[in-house]
Nucleic acid binder design. Structure first.
Lengths: 211, 211
DNA sequence: CGCAATTTTGCAGCCAGTGCAAATTTGCAT
DNA sequence: ATGCAAATTTGCACTGGCTGCAAAATTGCG
């Protein structure tokens, strides 16, 4: 399937849409980092991105969404990785591997993420919304985990264990990220990540290092 | 009105403030349950509560906050209970006990909570915000857990284990509540709650019942 | 009762967010 | 290339969320 040389995806239309989306996000983050989120209007963002204010709302349902809707693609990739995991792995191990792989990817782009994190740190309001969105993704993750474990019966509602594992996994990643953000220069992120999952696998016995 | 004997707290001024606050919350929840959140304006809420629209914003920073800011007092009580827990309990056990006690309390009021849950179910937007607020409380909980475990040194930043335990504990409660909401008539909430914590204590080994 | 502090309210106004229809751009078949 | 259909962008008008400010009402206290 390679007939097209550099066409990574779709037609010109779709590419332009993605470009506009990215331009809006970047403009919003940069303006917010400089002037503070509350002092950045939709009009300013749109102008910096070269579109009309009305167009902004064709891409985001609210002004805040431009700062909040970032992890959507990551979460889809994690779901695929969980489904593709070798069946010898326990559910917790499969999830651990899938998340580790995705996080290694994200660590590349690093720069935009750092700026974005700074913006969120300055507005608890947005931070809270972001956390909420991350957690809301669990439902989809729980579905995938339940599907992987079950023999094939398409259960309409994931069982308690799958829901718990999805939620705890997402929470573990968030804690690892937050902890690492505070001590960015002291620790390697992946070390923090694996320490967190070691704690979980051991049943959270106590503050002692489980290794 | 002359008897000051039943004055549970403060003067008339403070009581009236609490009354207004409660009236706004109740009016908002009832109106939202009936007409849908998006069809309930601040004007309607204020009118039902018997105050002016402007006054609404003296109590809540945004319209959505009236649906989102409910668990604040619960979380303070849980923190106190964790600090008061006997030191023979492991951190996970102490947290489990504190949360179980608080949840038993909340189950009494049941009625308003059920209505409120229904409203949130109808608006993913608010559900996400609520989850975010719950999770944001963890920082305070992590402080308390770290303080309980440490010999006395007031660390400025809770250690990784305390943060993880606080976050996972809050997540576990949320999962238990959500799971129970779906099967409200089949299961007793406390059974779900303890099953979740059994999974955690066992290190999430697999979907099999750990009991 | 009268004074000081607090709370409520109305008002004027900015900005977020939406529906609609016209204008513009893109994909594609001819 | 050219014209047509579909998708996208844009302007416009309008509702409603949200804020600052100062006047009016309410409460606490001597």
């Amino acid at each position: 399937m390679q007939g097209e040389k550099t066409a990574v995806e779709g037609g010109l239309r779709e590419r332009k849409k993605r470009a506009t989306h990215a331009a809006l996000v970047e403009a919003a983050v940069r303006l917010a980092a400089e002037h503070g989120v509350e002092n950045v209007t939709v009009e300013a963002i749109s102008e910096a991105a070269g579109v009309s204010p009305r167009t902004f709302f064709n891409y985001f349902a609210s002004r805040d969404d431009v700062y909040v809707m970032l992890g959507a693609e990551s979460s889809a990739r994690i779901r695929r990785a969980v489904l593709a995991a070798p069946s010898v792995l326990s559910p917790l191990e499969a999830l651990r591997e899938a998340m580790a792989a995705e996080l290694a990817e994200v660590e590349q782009q690093h720069e935009l993420w750092a700026l974005h994190a700074e913006v969120l740190r300055g507005s608890p309001h947005l931070l809270v919304r972001s956390i909420g969105v991350l957690m809301a993704d669990e439902i989809g993750l729980a579905d995938v985990l339940a599907e992987r474990s079950s023999t094939g019966g398409a259960s309409t509602v994931p069982d308690l264990y799958a829901r718990l594992l999805a939620a705890v996994g997402a929470t573990a990643v968030r804690v690892a990220v937050e902890h690492w953000c505070v001590r960015q220069d002291e620790l390697a992120f992946m070390d923090v990540f694996h320490e967190v999952f070691d704690h979980l696998a051991a049943g959270l016995p106590g503050p002692r290092d489980p290794s």
